[in-house]
Amino acid sequence: MDFGFCLSPSSHVKMDSVDLTTFNRLKETNPDLNTCIACGSCTATCTAGHFTEMSFRRILLMLQRGKEDEAKKMIQHCMLCGKCTLVCPRGINIRKILLDITR
């Protein structure tokens, strides 16, 4: 039955039971990831972000909250143009990290 409204599912994340394997693996292979200040420059310049929801900053957040599938779905939009890497004020090799997530 459609009431024209519904209850949205809880967005509560139980941090104790989150699976951080991918995120930890990433931090190990790309230690520069630790220096991210979540400034969002990567998202602001993203070529794919111009057309879609694509945002590297959100991808990192999703991984930190164990939402790996969502993150991988978002990466599918990436065009690998490398602008994010170029503008990162911390010099993080973002394009490599994106590729490593799915590896």
């Binding site: 794919a48 057309f51 879609t52 599918q76 939009h77 602008k83």
Partner: peptide, 29 residues
């Protein structure tokens, strides 16, 4: 690399210019 790319959103991209320009300038990313 093993990204399963999904660029279906490209289908909706519309041209910014239609007309009688002689020179087309593509800046690039």
């Amino acid at each position: 690399y093993t990204i399963n790319s999904d660029h279906s959103y490209l289908d909706n991209v519309e041209p910014e210019t239609k007309g009688n320009a002689k020179v087309l300038y593509f800046a690039g990313c």
